[in-house]
Simulated assay, not measured.
Amino acid sequence: MTPSICYAVGDATAPSATGPRIIAHVCNDVGGWGRGFVTALSRRGPEPEAAYRRWYREREQNDFGLGAVQLVPVHTNLWVANMVGQHGIRRAGGQPPVRYEAIEEALGRLAGHALDLGAAVHMPRIGAGLAGGDWTQIEPLIEKQLCARGVNVTVYDPPGRQGNVMR
């Protein structure tokens, strides 16, 4: 049976599941880190931010760019997936920073990592916060790239916002 997205109320930075886990989130392609979900990640530990900033700084020698994924080990059986899925940090020409094609590509790459590690993926409603995306367009990408390939996914809504489709 193909897994489907499980929705939970709680903190996506502290997945309650056991076993190998990956916390996935969307980053921008300009090296900015400091608003939204990343602030909660940084409160948990410095590794994801430090790795992202180094990845961006050394982008001439690596794969940094839209659609790329950086897997950062943070604890035993716990990784953070920095997925580059937004272009810039502000609306440009009326278009939000979210890039659905890049998120889909990053999710496909994430699936490979998750399957190799035997890990479940945990995330907030990626791309639907500061990136300005529409969850109704992002959810099917998760189902196609992760769930359809056998990866268990849990999406967390903060307490008091359950069922709220953020745009």
Rank of each mutant, 00 (worst) to 15 (best):
A120V: 01
Q86F: 04
V121P: 05
E58D: 11
G45L: 08
V69G: 05
W55G: 00
P73Q: 13
T76A: 07
I89V: 09
R57V: 00
Q95P: 00
P48N: 03
L115T: 13
I22L: 11
H113L: 13
A51F: 07
E58P: 06
R35Q: 10
P73M: 07
R109S: 02
G112V: 13
G36S: 12
L78T: 04
D134L: 11
L110T: 00
A120W: 00
G65D: 03
E101M: 09
E104V: 10
I138A: 08
P73E: 13
V72P: 00
E58S: 08
E49L: 08
Q70A: 00
E49H: 07
A68D: 06
A51C: 05
H113N: 09
G93R: 05
T39L: 14
A111T: 01
G85A: 12
Y100V: 02
V38F: 02
L41E: 00
R35N: 10
N77C: 10
L71Y: 08
R43V: 01
M123E: 04
A128H: 09
L41Q: 09
Y100F: 11
A128R: 05
L130D: 03
L110F: 12
V74P: 12
R21P: 01
V38D: 07
M123K: 14
L117T: 11
V69E: 04
P73Y: 09
G34Y: 09
A111H: 12
R59G: 01
Q95H: 15
E47S: 06
P46G: 08
N77F: 06
A120P: 01
N82E: 12
V98L: 07
L41V: 12
N82I: 03
D134R: 13
